[in-house]
Design a protein around this nucleic acid. Structure first.
Lengths: 135, 135
DNA sequence: TCATACTGTAATAAAATATGTTACAAATGT
DNA sequence: ACATTTGTAACATATTTTATTACAGTATGA
């Protein structure tokens, strides 16, 4: 659910990094993203499950970072929100009687695995702090 | 149109590489992919526009490779079918009055541009012939 | 020259996925 | 008590992807 998960999550985390001492409300965050607050809370729920942020309910509640922004990398955020990169698979059970159909998904998988390794290496070199400092 | 364009196109081209002297019908190709023949023809139309394949209409018609499979790389195929890789953008005009909202898409773009460069480098090292030889 | 087997393409339908909304219980500060 | 906020479920809408139908045009070969 939510295909722009990574973008939304990065946006949330950048805001939290900018205000590390405040509990930001989902309404406030949603105002920056221009997104429904419920969707923000859903992504925050995911971040909480990974112990990246903590929330406080009730009045003056909200969410703040639970980790040091220099210690977490975009790779980890990627993995929390966007399983893997790929360029698609044959989804309708390709013909198992055809040598190509039989192995196409397996060979695509191997190709995509390489892609992901390269992307992961790149993202692992960028901390949330690095990314936030661009703003 | 068609998100699995790359996968479908690779499948088509692998088949054409395996039978470099035959005109394969969209029906035959669709049988291996297990896909509607019209969708196959649409992807073939794209390949024709890029002069990668040629087709013959009428009885005993079909499609065959128009280039040497050792001369074309997966990078070129990627570029014909899958503009760029990305992990999503903020789509609802993020708030321009927020320093983060104002620059988020720009910074995501820069990140994704790096990703694409790395992926392109990988795909440029694999010819269609290389890929087909795995089957 | 006619039946057949293809491509090419448009129009439309169906299915899948992503995004947005409403509603409300539960928690917490003042 | 009251206002404000999270958490979550249920539902609604929009968008994108995939599939289908239909048919005109073209080549082949009996």
């Amino acid at each position: 659910m939510i295909s722009g998960k990574f973008a939304i999550t990065i946006h949330i985390l950048t805001l939290l990094t900018k205000f590390p001492n405040d509990y930001l409300s989902s309404e406030f965050i949603a105002g920056s993203i221009n997104l429904n607050p419920v969707l923000v809370r859903k992504e925050i729920a995911n971040l909480k499950a990974h112990h990246i942020v903590e929330s406080k309910e009730g009045k003056n509640g909200g969410t703040k970072l639970a980790v040091d922004s220099t210690k977490i990398t975009l790779k980890e955020i990627f993995e929390m929100t966007f399983e893997t990169i790929n360029l698609g698979y044959a989804k309708n059970q390709p013909n198992p009687d055809c040598p190509v159909g039989k192995k196409i998904n397996q060979n695509l998988s191997a190709l995509y695995a390489d892609m992901n390794q390269k992307v992961s290496l790149q993202l692992d070199g960028i901390s949330l702090e690095d990314f936030s400092n661009q703003f």
